[in-house]
Design a binder for these strands. Sequence first.
DNA 1: TCGATCATCAACCAAATGGTTGAATATGCA
DNA 2: TGCATATTCAACCATTTGGTTGATGATCGA
Lengths: 110, 110
Amino acid sequence: MTDPLDTVFAALADPTRRAILAMLLEDDMAVTDVAEPFEMSLAAISKHLVILTRAGLIAQEKRGRVKWCKLNPDAMRAASVWMQGFGQFEPVNLDAFERFLETELRDAPE
Amino acid sequence: MTDPLDTVFAALADPTRRAILAMLLEDDMAVTDVAEPFEMSLAAISKHLVILTRAGLIAQEKRGRVKWCKLNPDAMRAASVWMQGFGQFEPVNLDAFERFLETELRDAPE
DNA sequence: TCGATCATCAACCAAATGGTTGAATATGCA
DNA sequence: TGCATATTCAACCATTTGGTTGATGATCGA
């Protein structure tokens, strides 16, 4: 019922959550390790991870005691495309353009 | 002190505000006209416009009684660039994409 | 089996958000 | 001048958000 863009943009609106995403860009991480650099409780980080998961921006997989967090940048695509409607922000990157076409044609073949 | 990305993403997280931006893509509009299609008070829309203004996504200019709202898509640039760090789906040109598809479909119709 | 570790849950709190209504402020027009 | 229109302001309200703490449930390792 609520637009997925709502949850994605809302998830991205918090600096802690954006920092978490940036960390996960480097590598998959356990919840405790995600929390380590922040000056807030583990429970607070756990909540942030729930929000990121619901937005589809990360995936969490439990292996043993440890829950691993993995980035899922594809969830940004819809938001990114929506923004594209308002203008072209970057100099056209032909490599990226070709990758765009590849994924576009793969994901939504008619 | 607070990251501009916070305010931009937060502004974009609300469907009413995204709809307003989409409307302004067509043309500049007066506040009353912006409010017209929505089922909420003018005051509520006025607040949304303040939020969009503070985020830098629109500019408002008063001429006589009427305050005109004008899209400022450049404010999306930072957010757009931030997202680009997570994948190459960003720096593409949708117009170019459409032209590409056009010629592609014209030259090789299946 | 026991203690330590990983992570979430539950209850709570302050502040922010998104809406309302009614009054106030400017401006345009007859 | 006086009324109508355009917009905001002010006060209020319910809900959401982002944080806390303490308890709880799994799971690992000795």
